[in-house]
Amino acid sequence: MRVRFRIWRQDNARVKGGFRDYEVDGLNEDMSLLEALDHLNEQLVLRDEKVVAFEYDCREGICGQCGVFVNGRAHGPHANMTTCQLHLRSFADGDTITIEPWRAAAFPVIKDLIVDRSAFDRIIRQGGYISAKTGTAPEANAIPVGKEVADRAMDAAACIGCGACVATCKNSSAALFTAAKINHLNTLPQGKPEQHRRVSDMVQQMEEEGFGHCSFTGACEVECPEGISVANIAEMNARYLKAKLFG
């Protein structure tokens, strides 16, 4: 199988970048897209060129580190999938595959296809936790949590922090990411004591990082590898309002 890669190359954050085309041969449809990029990089090394910098780690769709814009979609042409789960069988022989880094003011490019997503960490830092020290926990079954509540918390908690929501959003809004964490913790009884502070502080941090507003286009839910519902954003808005009024 043969494809043409159109890849964004940019040496570092200070210089301008641009697209470069690479013809890659000798691929097969069972290879993942990232393996095809590995293959390209081996050829680049042998041609004495610098390799394309792109991110990955677990390559099984759970760590959230990989993530590029492939042919106009975050994580490629399928819904609810990570880039590492994308295989060449999703493309035709001879296709051009355009690969761009996530685009958002809050996610500056570090090199080629790698962006800096530390803004997410800073949002979590402002309250994406339950303040209980190690050693202070009560017996696990002391506080019953109904299955529906636990399931709802789990639905939100499933976020892997890949940033596809921000990448695909026309406003680069981080609302889905932030809402997922807030709802995960605020749904559970253990998270209730600091629920108002959590939502206020995390939303404030989200705004300070320079993400845009949520327009409820719903694109984020489609591109989210875990399919986290945009209803979470509405729920966060309700929680925020409540925190501001009664918090």
């Binding site: 936790y129 339950i130 209980a132 190690t134 050693g135 202070t136 926990a137 009560p138 696990a140 506080i143 019953p144 949590v145 109904g146 299955k147 509540v149 636990a150 399931d151 918390a153 789990m154 908690a157 995960h184 913790l185 559970l188 253990q190 998270g191």
Partner: peptide, 11 residues
Amino acid sequence: HFTQQGVPFAR
């Protein structure tokens, strides 16, 4: 500990 930290274990 993990339950207190908000891990949504199956119930």
